[in-house]
Amino acid sequence: MSTQPRSATLDRLTAMAGWLAAAAIVAAFGWLVFDIVRHGASEVSWTFLTAEPADAGRAGGIGTVLVSTLLILGVCLAIAVPLGLGTAVWLSEFARPCSWRVTAIRWSLDLLASVPSIVFGLFGMVVFCQMLRLGFSIAAGGLTLGCMILPLVVQTTYAGLQSVPNELRAGAAALAISRASTLRHLLLPAALHGVVVGVMLGLGRAAAETAALIFTSGYVTRMPESLLDSGRTASVHIYDLAMNVPRGEARAYATAAVLLLTLLLINVAATVLADRWLQRQTARSFR
């Protein structure tokens, strides 16, 4: 290592570069949030949140868009949560670690997480819209998003199960409690936080998605009457207003403000939950 003065300079330069980088990131993030909220908040009102879009979205509100968004998210969770939960429980509690099947499933989930969202859109269009004959619909969009957030749900649920102390499993086995009841009455309640955090993060990811939906759930702004109707989500609405509707900016700002604040809220809540859960666990292990 070098002499003291040069090192001290290096230390100071590193600190300075670090602060500059962090300041640039915070400034850009602050700029984004501030700009969206400042321009969008003035447009947001109860009428805006409940009315149907009019004049290609330039007037009216986003009521029907929000209904479609919630329905698509509902379908998405209905498919991703049971499948993801089952997968995580099997990987964590039943499978032999390091067997070929476990390795294959883990790698395939890692790769699934890396598939670009536009490719999920292509896949959903072929399989759900055309082969399963769902057409451009809320069901097809929700199923596509369900495939997309599956790795996230598996990962967090698995982490939750792994953090449950092994004494619980050993104790239950010693008492000859069946594995099904051990799972239902001991392991899942203890891992509930992981499941909840995973579902919230998945929800945030799904609500943020646009590219996977433009070819699967479509652009229709009418109030959906069934899951087989087409409906656009808030993020697709922003995309359409920004790209295809001249002078659509004001309403795009307002929709972006609603979406952004909702997602920040969901993510903060998920983080706080995960933190509190982590604290409780460390408290338990040091007791």
Binding site: P82, L83, G84, L85, G86, T87, V89, W90, L91, F94, A95, R101, A104, I105, S108, L109, L111, L112, V115, V119, F120, L122, F123, V126, V127, C147, L150, V154, S178, R179, A180, L183
Partner: peptide
């Protein structure tokens, strides 16, 4: 019941593991 539970969970895991394969196959097709 434990055996059935294991089978059901293994089925779920297998389906999850196949999604990425299906995506590649359908896009390739």
């Amino acid at each position: 019941p434990d055996r059935r539970l294991e089978l059901a969970l293994r089925a779920a895991a297998s389906v999850s593991g196949c999604v990425v394969l299906l995506i590649v196959l359908f896009v390739l097709w």
